[in-house]
Design a protein around this nucleic acid. Structure first.
Length: 280
DNA sequence: CGTACACCCTGGCCGC
DNA sequence: TGCGGCCAGGGTGTAC
């Protein structure tokens, strides 16, 4: 489910719940997700204050009093729901596929659910954020003002790999997944299969602008849907999106003036969508 | 080294 | 209803 906009939406929703509060209870169920949970997870968190909730690429990072960092990755199917402060200090109701919960000192909290268990939950020791390979090897954030179209071009113009695979490579730019890579390529009028070495400087500039446009739009939509469409169970993550190509095989291209039909193909075992008429 | 692919895991949906 | 097949927005290890 989650690419950068969804993770950022979750971050904004859980930050006010966690930040500045003390952890009353940390509940762990099962032995782990993609990796085993750290043995001392509950003990390390209980009684500590959460200092801030950050996002890097698709990782959620919660700063814990004392210098440790709680790392959460939602994988493909991870969601976080918010527990309201209802005054009851009773135990947290853990449903099917719930793996982790935090209850804060006011009774509010969060619960992590992840049916496919591709997600990650880890506790980084003080200082380990700089060295942990999951974070250290990430490329810049798409909105990093240090990067521009020229920067992107210099990183891709020697590559024979498809531009879609390059956009999804977290070491190049961090945060894009299958959906938004395809959306950006449609906006920039570039075929997903085009090799990196066949992308011009002007196209690279257009592409980075497209990446920023689709991500910004999605973050704005996520934010508004959270405000307007709070589900009864408080689950976060899924919301209506205005996707122009993803999942629209057989439908008309939405580019003004284009009469093409969206095609679905498979690249590296994953679905791709593009308009053969306006994407070259 | 860069690139391509299988794999991890469970649930939902569709057609028969 | 039941069942098989296919699909799913992630990262990573392995083989060329």
């Amino acid at each position: 489910m989650p690419e950068l906009p969804e993770v950022e939406t979750v971050r904004r929703a859980i930050a006010p719940v966690l930040e500045g509060r003390r952890i009353r209870a940390a509940l762990v169920r099962g032995t782990g997700l993609r990796h085993p949970f750290p043995r001392d997870l509950g003990q390390s968190l209980t009684g500590r204050r959460v200092e801030g909730v950050m996002r890097r690429a698709k990782y959620l990072l919660a700063g814990i009093e004392g210098g440790a960092t709680l790392l959460v990755h939602l994988g493909m199917s991870g969601t976080i729901r918010i527990l309201p402060a209802d005054g009851k200090a009773a135990g947290i109701a853990m449903g099917r596929h719930d793996h982790f919960a935090l209850q804060m000192n006011d009774g509010s909290g969060i619960v992590l659910r992840d049916p496919r268990r591709f997600g990650q939950l880890d506790l980084l020791a003080p200082g380990a954020m700089e060295t942990d390979p999951r974070l250290a090897l990430l490329g810049p954030e798409p909105f990093d003002p240090e990067i521009d179209g020229q920067w992107l071009w210099t990183r891709i113009h020697r590559s024979r790999a498809g531009i879609k695979a390059l956009l999804m490579d977290q070491r190049l730019i961090a945060g894009l997944g299958n959906i938004y890579a395809l959306e950006a390529l449609h906006l920039a009028r570039i075929r997903p299969t085009r090799r990196g070495c066949r992308v011009s400087r002007a196209e690279a500039t257009r592409l980075l602008e497209a990446v920023r446009h689709v991500l910004g739009e999605a973050i704005a939509a996520g934010g508004s849907s959270i405000r307007d469409h709070r589900r009864p169970d408080g689950a976060l993550g899924y919301f209506q999106q205005t996707l122009r190509v993803y999942g629209r095989a057989g439908a008309s291209c939405l580019r003004p003036g284009c009469t093409g039909t969206i095609r679905r193909t498979v690249q590296a075992g994953r679905s791709s969508f593009h308009c053969p008429a306006c994407q070259r």
